[in-house]
Design a protein around this nucleic acid. Structure first.
Length: 510
RNA sequence: GCCCCCGUAGUAUAGUCCGGUCAAGUAUGCGGGCCUCUCGAGCCCGCGGCCCGGGUUCAAAUCCCGGCGGGGGCACCA
C-alpha cells in the first residue's frame, strides 16, 4: 500500500511553480499552433505544459490557431479539426478556441494605435534597399515621416493601393540592436489573396499580420499570463516585447524550454509533406512519423505522453527522448490491461507424434488476472499425430534446446528441424516437468482454426503470420500482447470472402 | 559570419538561483538473483554520472574566467 502510494506520487510529479503567479488574477496559458499539419511530438511539450499549468493553477487554457499566413505556411483546412481531435485524444480540452484569421479587424485597429503612438510605420522601401540600411544600423527614409503620412499609407495598404511587397508595416525598435533581425521587424505585409486565398476567409483580406504582431496583440487581448514556448522563439519574444513597450502593456511571463528530439523518427512537417506527396509514407499516420496520430495508431497511450512531458518538464536544455523510456512508460500502463494472445510470425508446421488425445488448451487472457477468463484453443490428434504452427523465429531455439513446452498445451521433444517442418514427439503435459527441465516455453497456433494476421512494424515493414481464433473477437483499437512478440493495436480487419478475415495490427513495442 | 542559449550515468530527469546535509536522488538501460506455463510483468541486489582546465572559498555539480561540445535564431514563416 505504501509502495503504491509512493509510486503514484512519482508519476504525479509536480511541475515547478510558475513565476509571479500572484501578479495575475488568473493564470492564462495558450497553445498556438499553425494549422498546417496535425500535431506532432514537437508540439506536445508546449501543449501539455500549457494545459497542465493552467489546470494546476485552476486557470484558463486557450487554443489559438495562428493562421495568419495564407501563402508560405498556408493552413490546411483539415488540420484545424485534426488538431482538435488530437487534443481530445490526449485528454486536453481548451476553455476557449480562437482563430486569428477571424481577427484581422482587431489587428488593424491595434496597428493604427501603434502607428499613432509612433511605435510603427509603413515602409515602402524595397526589401533589398531596406536590408542594406538596416544592416548598417541606419533608418530608412520612411521612418522619419509624420504619423499622419503613415496612417494614410496604412489605409492605402488596406484599400489595395499597394501590391504585394510594395509596402509593409514595421515596428520601431532599436536600429542598433545586436540581432539584426530584431531591427524594425515587419508587422504586416500584403499578400495577393486572389492567388493565395486563405482557407477560412478566402480573399477578403489582403493585409496580413505577421506571427509576431498577431501573437503579441492576442497574448495581450486574451489576457495570457504565462507563455510556454520552445527556445526557437527567444528572438520572437524579444521582438514582441517592443509592441508591448510601445503600447504600454505588461509582457506576460515567458518560459523558454529546450527542443525535443527523438531518434529514428521523422518530425519535420515539410519532410513529412514531401514524403506523403511522393508516396513514401502512407499518410500522416504512417508509423515512421512523429505525429500524434501515428503514435496513437501504434498503441502509445495518451497518459504515457502526458507523463513523459511532465517528466521532461521545462528545462532550457535540449532533450532527446529515447524510445526505451517511451516504451517502458507505455508498457507499465499497457501490461496490466492488455490481454494475451498467441501469434506466430512466419509460421512453420510442427508435427507432434505420440499425442494420446485431442486437447483444448485454456491459456488465461491475462496471467495476473485469472478472473478475465481463458481462451479455448482446440488441438486435434488423429492417429496420435497433432499439428500446430510455430514461429520461424523459434526454429533456432527449438533445434538448440530440444525439450520445449508448447505454452498451455503439452511438452514436446524436437527430433528434426527442417526448412519448413518441425518433427517432434509428445512428452507429457506436466508443467512441473517443463519447469524442472527449464524447458523454453513457446507460443503456438493451431493449424485449423486460426486467423491471418499482419503486424505493421514501426519501420512500416509488415510482419506476417497466423494468430489464434480468439483474436477475431477483438475490436478495432484494442491493444493486446501478442505473447513473446510484443504489444500491438488492432488497426483494421479486412474481410475476404474466400480467404476469410485478415487482422492488421500496428506494433507498439516489446 | 553575427546574436543567443545549454552541457549531471547509455537515455531522461532532481539538485545549480540562496556554495556545505550531494563521496549526487529517481526512472529507464545493463548485469545477477527470486518469482512466473511469455525473452512480458513483479520483487531483490549490483553497475554506471557532475564536459575539460584554471580561479574564488575552510568548503563548488552549485559562484567567476577560459576552452571544448551541443542546440537555437539571423524571413514581407509560424
Amino acid at each position: 500500500m505504501e509502495a503504491l502510494a509512493k509510486r503514484v506520487e512519482v508519476e504525479e510529479k509536480r511541475l515547478p511553480p510558475l513565476p509571479n503567479v500572484d501578479m495575475y488574477k488568473l493564470v492564462v496559458t495558450r497553445f498556438a499552433p499553425n494549422p498546417d499539419a496535425p500535431l506532432h511530438l514537437g508540439s506536445l511539450r508546449p501543449l501539455i505544459l500549457s494545459y497542465e499549468y493552467a489546470k494546476m493553477y485552476k486557470g484558463r487554457f486557450i487554443l489559438r490557431f495562428d493562421d495568419t499566413d495564407p501563402k508560405t505556411k498556408r493552413p490546411m483546412p483539415e488540420a484545424y479539426d485534426w488538431i482538435i481531435e488530437d487534443m481530445k485524444w490526449l485528454g486536453v480540452e481548451a476553455d476557449e478556441v480562437v482563430y486569428q484569421s477571424d481577427r484581422l479587424e482587431i489587428y488593424y485597429e491595434k496597428a493604427r494605435e501603434l502607428i499613432e503612438r509612433g511605435g510603427a510605420y509603413v515602409c515602402t522601401c524595397s526589401q533589398e534597399g531596406f536590408k542594406a540600411l538596416r544592416d548598417s544600423g541606419k533608418p530608412c527614409p520612411c521612418r522619419a515621416l509624420p504619423v499622419e503620412e503613415h496612417l494614410k499609407r496604412f489605409d492605402d495598404m488596406l484599400s489595395g493601393l499597394y501590391e504585394e511587397k510594395e509596402a509593409v508595416v514595421r515596428v520601431r525598435t532599436d536600429l542598433n540592436h545586436p540581432d539584426v533581425s530584431v531591427r524594425e521587424w515587419v508587422a504586416f505585409r500584403i499578400i495577393d489573396v486572389d492567388e493565395n486565398p486563405h482557407p477560412r476567409v478566402g480573399s477578403r483580406f489582403r493585409v496580413w499580420p505577421t506571427y509576431n504582431f498577431a501573437c503579441a496583440v492576442d497574448d495581450y487581448l486574451l489576457n495570457v499570463s504565462h507563455i510556454l514556448r520552445a527556445k526557437e522563439h527567444i528572438t520572437n519574444t524579444l521582438k514582441q516585447r517592443y509592441v508591448y513597450e510601445h503600447m504600454g502593456w505588461r509582457f506576460p511571463e515567458t518560459i523558454h524550454f529546450g527542443r525535443l528530439k527523438l531518434a529514428n523518427i521523422i518530425l519535420s512537417k515539410s519532410l513529412i509533406r514531401r514524403g506523403i506527396a511522393k508516396g513514401e509514407f502512407k499518410g500522416w499516420e504512417d508509423p515512421r512519423l512523429g505525429t500524434i496520430r501515428a503514435l496513437r495508431r501504434r498503441g502509445i497511450l495518451p497518459e504515457t505522453l502526458r507523463e513523459l512531458m511532465l517528466h521532461v518538464g521545462v528545462k532550457t536544455s535540449e532533450a532527446s527522448l529515447s524510445w526505451e523510456n517511451i516504451y517502458s512508460a507505455n508498457r507499465k500502463r499497457l501490461d496490466p490491461q492488455a490481454n494475451r494472445y498467441f501469434y506466430v510470425s512466419d509460421p512453420v508446421t510442427m508435427v507432434v507424434e505420440g499425442v494420446p488425445k485431442s486437447y483444448i488448451a485454456t491459456p488465461p487472457l491475462h496471467p495476473d488476472h485469472p478472473e478475465r477468463g481463458v481462451r479455448r484453443i482446440h488441438v486435434e490428434a488423429i492417429g496420435g499425430e497433432a499439428r500446430v504452427l510455430v514461429s520461424r523465429r523459434d526454429l533456432e531455439l527449438l533445434a538448440r534446446r530440444r525439450f520445449v513446452r508448447l505454452m498451455a498445451l503439452f511438452n514436446v521433444e524436437v527430433k528434426e528441424v527442417e526448412e519448413s517442418l518441425v518433427k517432434a514427439v509428445y512428452r507429457g503435459e506436466s508443467v512441473e516437468e517443463a519447469t524442472k527441465l527449464k524447458a523454453p516455453i513457446v507460443q503456438w497456433v493451431p493449424t485449423k482454426r486460426n486467423v491471418e494476421v499482419e503486424v505493421v512494424m514501426p519501420s512500416a515493414e509488415e510482419d506476417k503470420g497466423k494468430g489464434e481464433e480468439a483474436l477475431t473477437s477483438l475490436n478495432k483499437g484494442d491493444i493486446v500482447q501478442l505473447v513473446r512478440f510484443g504489444f500491438a493495436r488492432l488497426d483494421d480487419r479486412k474481410g475476404d470472402e474466400e480467404k476469410g478475415e485478415k487482422l492488421v495490427f500496428y506494433y507498439a513495442h516489446e
